[in-house]
Design a protein around this nucleic acid. Structure first.
Lengths: 327, 327
DNA sequence: TATGTAAATGTAAACGATTTCATTTTATTC
DNA sequence: GAATAAAATGAAATCGTTTACATTTACATA
């Protein structure tokens, strides 16, 4: 493997000059620049990131913490992150935590060990204490899920408002018996979306019915199936369901179909996220679209900014209601 | 940021000894080991990967080349890769090429620049010439899609046989007019699966009908929708469709439903891959299960083996026919 | 031609670990 | 207690860059 010394020797200059050519510094005369470039070509030289990174004390790697790679919600965000990262010569390390503290710690270690320059955390189940502690020494951004008092910069949408909008839509098309399929209340977004749900009902003087609120442990398809079974078993069956994630909603769709009922005739369903798949179901899913790609680009920009030592502000992006067949 | 020197000073030993403690070498007396460990704790020291990697000329990063992160087929493979990688102290860099040679080249550069120790390529559209060239100097494995004459080790399934099995299933349940929804013939797997299709038909003396073979550019949901439209428009309409990817099949399902026909009553559909979503559709999708997780673990093991300088053999894994509602 | 200034280039010290080889310390045996 | 072997430790080179600082070269001016 050829190194910078050999290039310097071949070109008859010092390593400093080669380095300058490599980094496009304009203090090199065009005559020597050409000599160096020829030597590089001759020797098939590729500068080693290992040396470069050590010298610059950086890894040019960004860590992305997600609970599960199977949830398509994150994929679009990741694409956004990647676009910005690549354009700034960063690479991204995708880290699936499975909401498992041990795995999480493996990844945290990567930034402690300088294997990564910063973290974008999207795991709602992240250990916030550790994250806070880490944020004192390293660059960290929270994306989608966040903590108000942590002091860690975040990008997100207004969950309460978006949820309110979703439920209001159901009310507007005539529903009064509306179930909420929520995830675990320990998550901030879950609490926020429940508040939006409540506000919409209150505003239209629909009494709150605790039986209509179902919690699931995770946001998976199967959990949607399970949860909807409970909802269908309720005596005074709801005529509409608001699920806080498309995956839950798609699980619900499937199970409702299986039970012989029809969406939206018997029960309307509305999801949250607008993942790719929400358009592939039968019927297609009405949902709240999160600007996922944008969220990714913003998060990446914030993180890189932070790595450079700048202060960054929190960002709240807009959502959109996407009307489709399921309502 | 504290470094190994400071730890050595604090512990009153040389950096060599600290390094030995760090790497669990047993030539250190327990008395000094304790001294060093205390110093490490006191100073909150974390060894820098940057120094370590330079010294060891390795990055401990594996590159994974996939055409698109949106195709769930790859996700399960990635999980398998990750499991092995983590257990061997490697991390994985997920690289989405979009089958775009430029993007591909950015990622190839990472291994040239020592930012990655090896590549697992899953991109069927990969520039095989560049890959071959790269494989002479670096460790590369092909996963799922491969090239026979490239000399690059691969892990895959027997596509011809699996395809044969799928079509045979359709024939066994009474179908004679069977369409093949294939991807582009430039891909080896596409040609292999078409051969399996032909063999099954021939074996049961069903004449080949060129109109029944449709090619799509990509393996996406929308492409399945498009393709099935053509199939439905055929005069002598097929009673069954074999799609070479679940995503295509799911697109077909959706479009068939939309056109008022019923699966499997009017048209049976069988897919390929057994992605998670194939179980979430209505009706659920009969499909050929690829051992994706296993494929991932095997690929990772092969690659790490290769990085260590060992020779590795090609591996062909078993598939399985999964019967569900769509046939 | 001598001098001053700017541009181009070089020297050598980092960056933070690992490891070879030399040296010191400890344990073992007679 | 001396001789020897074995175990523990240290000094210094090394990995491949970048860059501060020193030095040389080129050029303009008087």
């Amino acid at each position: 493997m050829t190194n910078i010394q050999q290039v310097a020797k071949q070109a008859g200059v010092s390593v400093a000059t080669v380095s300058r050519v490599l980094n496009g510094q304009n203090t090199v005369s065009s005559k020597t620049r050409i000599k160096v470039e020829e030597a590089i070509k001759n020797l098939n030289y590729e500068p080693s990131m290992l040396g470069r990174n050590l010298r610059n004390s950086e890894s040019r790697i960004l860590l992305i913490l997600i609970p599960s790679i199977s949830n398509p919600f994150y994929l679009e965000i990741i694409k956004g992150i990647e676009q910005i990262a690549l354009s700034q010569n960063y690479n991204i390390l995708l880290c699936e935590t499975d909401s498992n503290p041990e795995k999480e710690n493996i990844y945290f270690d990567l930034v402690r060990k300088k294997m990564a320059d910063g973290i974008i955390s999207m795991d709602p189940a992240v250990n916030i204490e550790t994250l806070k502690e880490l944020a004192e020494k390293y660059s960290i951004i929270q994306c989608s899920e966040y903590n108000l008092d942590s002091g860690i910069p975040y990008v997100t949408i207004d969950n309460e408002e978006a949820s309110y909008r979703a439920v209001k839509h159901l009310i507007q098309i005539g529903h009064k018996k509306i179930a909420l399929m929520n995830s675990d209340e320990k998550f901030l977004y879950a609490r926020q979306r429940e508040m939006g749900y409540q506000r919409a009902l209150e505003e239209h003087e629909i009494p709150l019915n605790d039986d209509y609120i179902i919690y699931t442990k995770h946001l998976g398809f199967e959990h949607g199936q399970q949860a909807v079974k409970k909802i269908l078993a309720i005596q005074d069956r709801p005529t509409a369901i608001f699920a806080v994630s498309d995956l839950l909603a798609i699980g619900a769709l499937k199970e409702i179909n299986a039970s012989g009922l029809h969406v939206p005739k018997d029960i309307a369903v509305i999801g949250f996220d607008k993942i790719d798949f929400s358009n592939m179901t039968n019927p297609t899913l009405t949902t709240i679209a999160q600007p996922m790609y944008k969220m990714g680009t913003v998060a990446a920009e914030m993180l890189i900014d932070k790595i450079r030592g700048n202060d960054v502000d929190n960002v709240i992006l807009n959502y959109e209601l996407v009307l489709r067949e399921s309502t």
